[in-house]
């Protein structure tokens, strides 16, 4: 076989191998992203043909800025993301170190238990959490009552409902992030710690001067993934609160689905969806740029 024919054969193979995956991704991911933007410039009910769309320009976006529903959903989403980030990230770092460093039996069991929450269908386990949170019949209120604490009404109180969903999210996802931390820890060579010990650094000193700085990439990645996962929370809201009570748990993804599929306002739903995408891109950009700048600064020093 000549070089020329093998080259042509390989080009044919490349096209054949790539096209199934690329067809799906282009048709069902790339095209829909563009369509989301296009639809967001129109008034349209999803259940009518595209020809019945009417042009609105940026009108839907202008409406969003004055829409109490959207602003409420945006605020709820932000609060939810903050609740999740400030708890899961430190917790995952602490648990990762706990399940990596000590020489103790049961590490494997603990890792498996922690990670198991991630594989169970959200719908199934959210139903269980609904029962755990139940005011009279639930174990949580009972346990708090036993130690003399007046239990909040959890999901039925607008003050605590969003927080309760956040607690569920933290319970469900922390195991996954912990495994990522453990993966990061395995990449730190032992001699770094040895050197620190010779310099007289104790446990806390090692944690803050060696472990955490060397885990920065992992941590950044976890912050990003955790934010993306929290921003799109839908299943538990749909199952447990339907956005209530008093709209206190209406987050963006729920508002988008409701506007499009229940209220027939696909244009406005798409404006929300595209805004969400822009926010995500901006957040990812900032986080990644910050990471790059830090890495560059370290390289120079």
């Amino acid at each position: 076989m000549t070089v020329q024919t093998s080259h042509t054969a390989r080009r044919g193979a490349a096209i054949a191998f790539l096209s199934p995956a690329m067809a799906v991704i282009v048709l069902f991911v790339a095209v829909p992203i563009a369509l989301t933007f296009w639809i967001s410039l129109h008034d349209w009910s999803m259940y009518t043909p595209l020809s019945q769309m009417t042009w609105r320009g940026l009108g839907n976006y202008a409406d969003l800025l004055h829409s109490d529903d959207f602003l409420n959903a945006l605020e709820n989403t932000l609060v939810y993301v903050v609740i999740v980030l400030v708890t899961t990230v430190p917790l995952a770092l602490a648990l990762g170190m706990l399940l990596y460093f000590p020489k103790m039996a049961g590490k494997g069991v603990a890792r498996a238990a922690l990670f198991s929450t991630y594989v169970i269908p959200t719908v199934a386990i959210a139903i269980v959490w609904g029962a755990l949170y139940a005011p009279d019949y639930g174990p949580l209120s009972q346990a708090l009552g036993a130690v003399g604490i007046d239990s909040p009404a959890w999901l039925s109180d607008p003050q605590t409902a969003l927080l309760s969903l956040g607690v569920f999210h933290v319970w469900q996802m922390t195991g996954y992030y912990t495994i990522l931390v453990i993966a990061g820890l395995t990449q730190i060579p032992d001699d770094v710690y040895e050197a620190a010990r010779i310099d007289g650094a104790g446990f806390w000193r090692q944690t803050f001067s060696v472990t955490l700085p060397l885990l920065r990439r992992t941590t950044t990645f976890i912050v990003l993934i955790a934010a993306i996962n929290a921003i799109q929370v839908f299943d538990p809201v749909y199952i447990l609160t339907q956005g209530g009570p008093a709209e206190s748990t209406t987050v963006l993804s729920y508002a988008i689905q409701r506007a499009a599929f229940q209220n027939g306002m696909a244009g406005q739903a798409s404006a929300m969806a595209f805004s969400l995408l822009l926010v995500l891109v901006a957040v990812a950009g900032v986080v990644l740029a910050a990471m790059r700048r830090r890495t560059a600064a370290e390289g120079r020093s």
Partner: peptide, 20 residues
């Protein structure tokens, strides 16, 4: 570009996907 789509929340494209 393909990898970037890994991070795209499905809710963003739900409406056009339904339409398609």
């Amino acid at each position: 570009s393909v990898v970037a789509t890994m991070f795209l929340p499905p809710i963003v494209t739900l409406v056009p996907l339904y339409w398609l």
